[in-house]
C-alpha cells in the first residue's frame, strides 16, 4: 500500500486538560478520498491541525511523503494544501492577490498563468479583482480552496468543506472534489454530514472522543455493518410462521400481521426473493412489502452509540 501520510500514536492534550486525541494511528493512501467522520468535538480538526502544523502534538509522529512534519516541516508542509473550516479570509483583500499571496507563502515564484488556471477551475476568474468581503459564502469557500491549491499541493485537506452550504452548492463542491481526485490529488475531508462521506469517500475513518474506532473501505464498511430489513405486511393475521418458511431467519410480529426479515451483509437480495417466492407458494396473502438498507448514518450512530454506552 502506497501511504502518503502516516500517523503513528498521535496524542494531543490541551493545556486546559482536554484530551482531544488518544493515540491515533492512520495511513492515508495516495490518490484516495479519505473521509474522517465524527461528531462535533470528536477530534477531527485537532487531527488535521496537527498534520498541517497548526497544532503541536503531545506525542506521536506524522510523516508526509516520508518527511517528518516537525523535523522536516518545510518538505512536509509544501505538499499539503489546507482549506480550513472557518471562512478565514482577508475581507479587504482581492481574490487574485490573496491567491498569489498563498503561492508565495509556500515558496513558489509568481506564475500568473497558473493562478489564472486555478481561478478558472473554481469559476472565480470573473471575480479575480473583487473584494473578498463582497463575495457570497460559497464563493469565499472557493477562494479558500483556490488559496490551498495555489502552490500545487499533492494532498488537500478539507475541513468541513460544506458546513453551512446549501444543497446545490454542496453538490457543486462534491463535483469539484471528485475532479481534484481525478487530477491525482489525495484528499482528506472531515465532515459530520454522513451523506457527504457516503457520497464522496473511498475510505472512511470514524473518530469519536479522540479515538479512531474504525477505518475501512466505505463499501466494505457498509457491507459488514449494514443491515437489510424486509418487512412483509399480511392481509390476515397468522398464529405462527407457516412450515413453508422454515429454515429462514424470520420473525412474526405479535399481532401476526407482519413478517420481518433482518440480515447483515451483502447477498441477502437472493434471500429476499426466496422468501417472497415461498410465501406466494404457501398462499399467504401479502398486503405490503417494505425493504430498506441501512445507511452509513445508521452504522455511524450504532458505532458511536456503542462506544458511548
Amino acid at each position: 500500500m502506497d501511504s502518503v501520510i502516516s500517523i503513528k500514536g498521535l496524542r494531543k492534550t490541551y493545556d486546559a486538560g482536554t484530551e482531544a486525541l488518544k493515540g491515533v494511528d492512520l495511513d492515508i493512501r495516495r490518490g484516495e478520498i479519505f473521509g474522517l467522520l465524527g461528531e462535533n468535538g470528536a477530534g477531527k480538526t485537532t487531527l488535521i491541525g496537527i498534520v498541517c502544523g497548526l497544532i503541536r502534538a503531545t506525542a506521536g509522529t506524522v510523516t508526509v511523503d516520508g518527511h517528518d512534519n516537525v523535523t522536516a516541516y518545510r518538505a512536509a508542509r509544501a505538499r499539503i494544501g489546507l482549506v480550513p473550516q472557518e471562512l478565514a479570509v482577508d475581507m479587504f483583500g482581492h481574490v487574485r492577490h490573496t491567491v498569489e499571496f498563498s503561492r508565495g507563502l509556500f515558496g513558489k515564484g509568481r506564475d500568473p498563468a497558473r493562478i489564472e488556471e486555478v481561478l478558472r477551475s473554481l469559476s472565480l476568474w470573473d471575480k479575480r479583482d473583487a473584494k473578498i468581503g463582497d463575495l457570497s459564502g460559497g464563493m469565499k469557500r472557493r477562494v479558500l480552496i483556490a488559496k490551498a491549491l495555489a502552490h500545487d499541493p499533492d494532498i488537500l485537506f478539507l475541513d468541513e468543506p460544506t458546513a453551512g452550504v446549501d444543497v446545490s452548492l454542496r453538490r457543486d463542491m462534491w463535483a469539484l472534489i471528485g475532479k481534484l481526485r481525478d487530477e491525482g490529488k489525495t484528499i482528506i475531508l472531515t465532515t459530520h454530514y454522513i451523506e457527504e462521506a457516503e457520497e464522496m469517500a473511498d475510505r472512511i475513518g470514524v473518530i469519536t472522543r479522540g479515538e479512531l474506532i474504525l477505518v475501512d473501505e466505505k463499501r466494505a464498511m457498509m457491507e459488514k455493518l449494514g443491515q437489510t430489513r424486509l418487512s412483509v405486511g399480511l392481509k390476515a393475521p397468522l398464529a405462527a410462521l407457516p412450515p413453508a418458511l422454515d429454515g429462514l431467519p424470520l420473525t412474526l410480529s405479535d399481532d401476526g400481521l407482519t413478517i420481518v426479515h433482518q440480515a447483515g451483509g451483502e447477498g441477502e437480495s437472493a434471500e429476499v426473493a426466496e422468501i417472497l417466492k415461498r410465501m406466494i407458494a404457501a398462499d399467504i396473502d401479502i398486503a405490503t412489502v417494505d425493504s430498506s438498507r441501512s445507511s452509513l448514518e445508521d452504522i455511524f450512530v450504532d458505532l458511536v452509540g456503542g462506544k458511548r454506552s
Binding site: C52, A78, V89, D90, L105, F106
Partner: peptide, 16 residues
C-alpha cells in the same frame, strides 16, 4: 489582525 480573523492559519501551515 490575522490572529483575530483566523487567516494566520495559512502562515502557520506554510513552510515558513
Amino acid at each position: 489582525l490575522p490572529r483575530f480573523t483566523g487567516t494566520i492559519y495559512e502562515v502557520l501551515s506554510a513552510p515558513v
